[in-house]
């Protein structure tokens, strides 16, 4: 069987975001990176890989998106699939989920899909459950821990009131949080070894998909960059100057008048 890990190439959160004229993220503007939370997904997928199994990293995106798969291979995935098609520019979550679901089907023997709980750019966190519904599979989301046990997947999920243990039958989609592990940066040996692993680039037609219909009626009509935060007032603490500045700020907002 195969574990598929879905990864996304996102603008580097350290870089300023650039929107193109059509108000979509200019994904060609800067060097991107593997979405931070997807590192946890790759880490989990590689740990959950059972004997004689493979981990296939799947991404959808423009040319540069291959870098996300490259990073997944460096972190231990065995193969990669890059779905790239001009018709996918600006794809919404429903289209994204449809493409990823088709890619999972194309793998043939997948029984588990691992995703990060959300991307660092879009951030809606709903792609995993949509992929599951499109495949007709179970979805266990926001896992802080994942275990495979026969034909079932067991996850631990932190809710505001309790830590819950959930069980779902395979095949299933799980999404993981950043409490699921601590992905390590790839070693140099792994970086060089990843160059030899196969990556398949496919378009929509190879996945048996037509051109996606544009989202019915949804249109971003304006995107305004927030006023940049004015440079911070920096106080180097000495002789209580830090505490004084802190208390002054709180007092200025009447937030110290407590317990009277």
């Amino acid at each position: 069987m195969t574990i598929v890990v879905c990864v996304k190439h996102v603008p580097d959160p350290a870089d300023p975001v650039v929107l193109a004229a059509d108000l979509r993220v200019d994904r060609e503007a800067g060097a991107g990176t593997l979405s931070g939370l997807d590192e946890y997904a790759v880490d989990q997928a590689v740990r959950l890989r059972r004997a004689r199994e493979r981990v296939v990293a799947v991404t959808m995106g423009p040319r540069g998106a291959r870098a996300a798969v490259t990073r997944a291979l460096q972190m231990g995935a065995d193969e990669g699939i890059v779905v790239s098609d001009e018709a996918l520019a600006g794809a919404d979550v429903l289209t994204t989920a449809a493409v990823l679901a088709a890619a999972v089907r194309s793998v043939g023997d997948a029984d588990l899909v691992v995703c990060g709980m959300s991307s660092t750019d879009g951030g809606s966190g709903v792609v995993p459950v949509l992929v599951a519904d499109l495949l007709g599979w179970a979805c266990a989301g926001h896992a802080a821990a994942v275990e495979l046990d026969g034909g079932r997947v067991t996850i631990q999920r932190d809710d505001p009131d309790a830590r819950r243990t959930l069980v779902a039958p395979l095949p299933a989609v799980v999404s993981v949080t950043d409490l699921s592990g601590e992905p390590t940066y790839p070693s140099f040996k792994a970086i060089l070894a990843a160059r030899r692993r196969p990556v398949r680039e496919v378009g929509l037609s190879e996945l048996g998909l037509g051109t996606p219909s544009t989202a019915p009626g949804t249109r971003t009509v304006s995107a305004v960059e927030a006023d940049p935060r004015p440079p911070a007032r920096i106080v180097t603490d000495s002789d209580g100057s830090g505490a004084a500045a802190l208390l002054e700020l709180l007092a200025g907002r009447s937030l110290l008048e407590v317990d009277r």
Binding site: T184, S187, F188, I191, L192
Partner: peptide, 26 residues
């Protein structure tokens, strides 16, 4: 952050020059 090509170049050069570092990682 550095581009993948730069990291790969660094990996090659560093592994050639510093074989005594057993398993360097980024």
């Amino acid at each position: 952050h550095a581009e993948d090509a730069a990291i790969e170049r660094c990996a090659e050069k560093a592994m050639h020059r510093f074989p005594g570092i057993e398993d360097p990682s980024v």
